[in-house]
Simulated scan of single mutants.
Amino acid sequence: MTERYTAVLDRIVDGETAVLLLEDDGTVVDERVLDVDRLPEDGRHEGAVFDVELADDDSLEADDDGPEANDDLETMSYRPSLERDRREEAQDRFDRLSERLSDE
């Protein structure tokens, strides 16, 4: 059985390691660390949004060495339209918060 999540690229460390935040219904529930080379090329930037599928834990071999440790990532697809929508929503929220309150 696979689990599906939305993942956001939080950061790239030293140009080699990517940190993905996994979200379930808009809440961060976990993170995955992997080699940047495993990301789709057009999604190798902070804030990139992906659909990911994770393998069932029972099918994995235990290995705690480096970014590939506990490698349960089965598929990943870049979602540029979802990324754009999320950026626009965040900007709208910021704009509303930065408006002056009325004098009432």
Rank of each mutant, 00 (worst) to 15 (best):
M1I: 01
E3K: 13
Y5F: 03
T6K: 09
A7D: 11
V8C: 00
D10N: 14
R11F: 00
R11C: 08
V13P: 01
D14W: 08
E16M: 13
E16G: 13
E16I: 14
T17I: 10
A18D: 11
L20N: 09
L21T: 15
D25F: 00
D30S: 06
D30V: 02
E31T: 14
D35T: 11
V36A: 05
R38D: 09
L39W: 12
L39F: 13
P40W: 06
D42T: 01
D42F: 04
G43K: 07
A48I: 05
V49D: 03
D51G: 14
V52D: 03
L54P: 11
S59W: 02
E61N: 02
E61Q: 04
G66S: 01
P67R: 06
P67T: 01
E68N: 12
E68C: 05
A69N: 05
D72H: 01
D72Q: 04
T75L: 04
M76Q: 15
M76L: 14
S77D: 08
R79I: 15
R79T: 15
R84S: 11
R84E: 08
D85H: 12
R86L: 10
R87W: 00
Q91C: 08
Q91A: 14
D92F: 06
F94E: 09
L97G: 06
E99A: 13
S102V: 13
E104S: 11
